[in-house]
Design a protein around this nucleic acid. Sequence first.
DNA 1: ACCGCATTACTGTGATCACATTGTGAGGCG
DNA 2: CGCCTCACAATGTGATCACAGTAATGCGGT
Lengths: 240, 240
Amino acid sequence: MQSDDGDEDTGHDEPAPKGTTLQERVYAELREAIMLGRFRPGEAMTIRGLADSLGTSMMPAREALRRLVAERALDLLPNRRVTVPTMTGEMFEELTEARVALEVLAARRAFPATDPAFADRLEAIDLEQDAAIEARDWALYQERNRAFHFELYERAPGRVLMPMIESLWLQIGPFLYLTRESLGRTYMEDRHKEAVAAIRSRDEDALALAIEQDIRDGMGGLPALIADQNAEGKSVEAVG
Amino acid sequence: MQSDDGDEDTGHDEPAPKGTTLQERVYAELREAIMLGRFRPGEAMTIRGLADSLGTSMMPAREALRRLVAERALDLLPNRRVTVPTMTGEMFEELTEARVALEVLAARRAFPATDPAFADRLEAIDLEQDAAIEARDWALYQERNRAFHFELYERAPGRVLMPMIESLWLQIGPFLYLTRESLGRTYMEDRHKEAVAAIRSRDEDALALAIEQDIRDGMGGLPALIADQNAEGKSVEAVG
DNA sequence: ACCGCATTACTGTGATCACATTGTGAGGCG
DNA sequence: CGCCTCACAATGTGATCACAGTAATGCGGT
């Protein structure tokens, strides 16, 4: 598990650290895992442990962790310990409001750059999302949902809004895995179709409304699940 | 610890790294300098240079720089070079919209936690700001303006909105120094008084409107100044 | 058997070194 | 005289080591 022979990493399929730094690969991998809910909230992450599990030295793991802390994806306890944030109902509500404020703004800014062709592409993504629901493929469903939103927001140029929105999604990520069982009952795809229709009919306000309601619908059921998880997890991680 | 004479840094007066890490001191110092506009946009910052100027090793400087990059306070060029961001009119407009969206939301969330006593404190800050204008003390003026806003926003609990707002202020910081000469013509203190009045009359919408207009007023004149600075700076930093 | 304390293992922080890449300058060739 | 090329300096990245604080553990005392 050591990097003695150069750029080959053990057990993975990344071809080469060419053009990208090792730290960035670690960061990307961690970021993905966090967004997919691979880590349990409250779980502690150590520099050496992460470095070992990825076959690198401490340095890349260290910088990746600190970067994710700076982006609020991970929590830095006063003990200098880095953990996956534990979500509370209030924080989730705050994240929802922030998402609405920023993503509605991003959608409005993207609106002038949309056209029928783009609406088609968005619709295609939404159809794939519907298919993911049919197939009960939760990971694909999340991925396509993310693609739908970001494809829209990226339509507007600028490097201010997108990083902040990504940070919000990153903060929500660790708790999104709680929605796995409730996949069937989701009805937010309606909002996506409303958004596409709004683009086609050149109605910016309707687009903004669709995005806002999509966010609120999707986030609405989470606090209860968080309460559940906190209640059931109390016996397990009460040690911390 | 062998930087000639131990843990003393050269030329500064920080007493001791007690309770706080060295990296955090470097970060705080850099952050303050950026907010105060001590660095010229486009200026490159090297790890070793920063480390030397602060009398530390590369490591704290390195992590502080990367953290500020993660917070969008500094720019990471594809050359892996860290520079003070160069602002464009479009980006400034984007920052303004993001500020309005987030800070209005923060003000609304803070509103229920406000009372007459808090309004008095806010008014006191605003009076100090007025005094700073009279005294032509630009630095104090900026500091009191920041205090006014953050005092209000911090009234609401939560750890989501504040870091994002701070990041926005950090991104604006490097260009705020352009407003030094135009201090006398500012009229945004009216908005602050409107905000205080809105709190006293328990009018949340009026508070939100006052904050929004305060932001727009304060940011409105900047793009022209940015254009000026770009035009005059072209002969100097055209080398980049 | 339980509680208090000292020892041990572990973690983050800071420093130093080695290397690859990039930027810069001088010198040679057309 | 201008452009290209090569060498040198500087920078970021990654690795390793040393130290300090903290949590976990084992031991002895009551």
